[in-house]
């Protein structure tokens, strides 16, 4: 009886030891995996930063750590191209898009989440589904519409298409979010005699703040990455956006400016990346709030 007990204890100790070994191996493997993935993620990022400081304009010699680092590419970008102009244009569109989108989307979502009216669900589903129509064909029609209203080659015209384009998805996200917010505050304010617009400004806006942050960031971001719309609607050089300008640096077959492109890419990506990383909590919150299933 006693001896068997000691035996038992001994075997548990042994088991524990091998358990610890196993534990360490697993931890080691997990670290190996995350380090490997981190490297794969970082290499292209570091490569483009390295290339932006490279001395030649070709890619063949570029590496993560350039041999003769120089700021020439950045200088050329500012002096030789309209880079600052493109940056300014894109910034302008981004801000207009952000401000108008936040106001229109939040108001629309407020109505959709707090009022009952005829055709509510149908119109919400309808616009969401219409969004699925491939947009290039639609471009011809927008082109001719803008031609008739003098909005072609106009930054605000471009911003208008962004504002319209983001409505369905963001209204749906915002509505999902507001639906999860209790209506008791609204009702209390209503009883106190507040008007619906007052309720909107004083109650809904503060309550929806996390989602509004998400909306603001994502609508601010959209014009920096979009290529097709400005390509089709903007024709003059001075009104190009960054996406078009940068693409043109490397899209021609003959005179490619890869290192200048790299410098431009770094200048675009750095502020946006910082913004994203800093606000990641809100962004993750934004996507999970309305679009998931319970």
């Amino acid at each position: 009886m006693k001896s068997s007990q000691t035996l038992n204890i001994q075997s548990t100790i042994k088991e524990n030891k091998s358990h610890k070994m196993k534990d360490r191996i697993i931890t080691g493997l997990m670290y190996l995996e995350i380090i490997a993935v981190a490297l794969i993620v970082l290499v292209p990022v570091l490569w483009i930063i390295g290339t932006s400081f490279d001395n030649s304009s070709s890619l063949a010699t570029s590496s993560i750590i350039p041999k003769n680092p120089t700021l020439n590419n950045y200088k050329k970008l500012f002096n030789g191209t309209d880079f600052t102009l493109w940056y300014g244009n894109t910034l302008k569109i981004a801000i207009v898009n952000m401000v108008c989108s936040v106001i229109i989307t939040t108001l629309t979502a407020y109505v959709f989440s707090r009022f009952k009216f005829k055709g509510k669900k149908a119109s919400l589903l309808g616009i969401m589904v219409l969004q699925m129509f491939p947009s290039f064909m639609a471009m011809t029609a927008i082109y001719i519409l803008f031609l008739n209203f003098g909005l072609l080659d106009n930054l605000y015209g471009l911003a208008l298409t962004y504002i319209a384009g983001q409505i369905p998805y963001n209204v749906w996200l915002m509505k999902g979010y507001l639906g999860g917010v209790s209506m008791s505050l609204d009702e209390a304010a209503m009883l106190d005699g507040a008007t619906r617009l007052q309720i909107f400004w004083k109650i809904i806006i503060p309550l929806a703040f996390p989602m509004i942050t998400f909306l603001a960031v994502s609508t601010f971001m959209a014009p920096w990455m979009d290529y097709i719309l400005p390509r089709l609607l903007i024709s003059s050089d001075s009104k190009k956006t960054l996406a078009v300008g940068l693409y043109d640096l490397i899209s021609s077959d003959a005179n490619n400016q890869y290192t200048q492109f790299a410098a431009g890419a770094v200048l675009v990506a750095v502020p946006i990346t910082i913004l994203y990383v800093a606000l990641q909590k809100h962004l993750i919150y934004g996507i999970t709030a309305g679009s998931t299933k319970e």
Binding site: V41, M225, V268, T273
Partner: peptide, 23 residues
């Protein structure tokens, strides 16, 4: 780690696509 992994999402996709195209 999370900060590193979030990078591909944070960098404007057009920029990373064009970087890969040249790589």
């Amino acid at each position: 780690w999370r900060g590193i992994y979030i990078l591909p999402w944070a960098i404007p996709s057009m920029v990373s696509l064009l970087v890969f195209r040249t790589m």
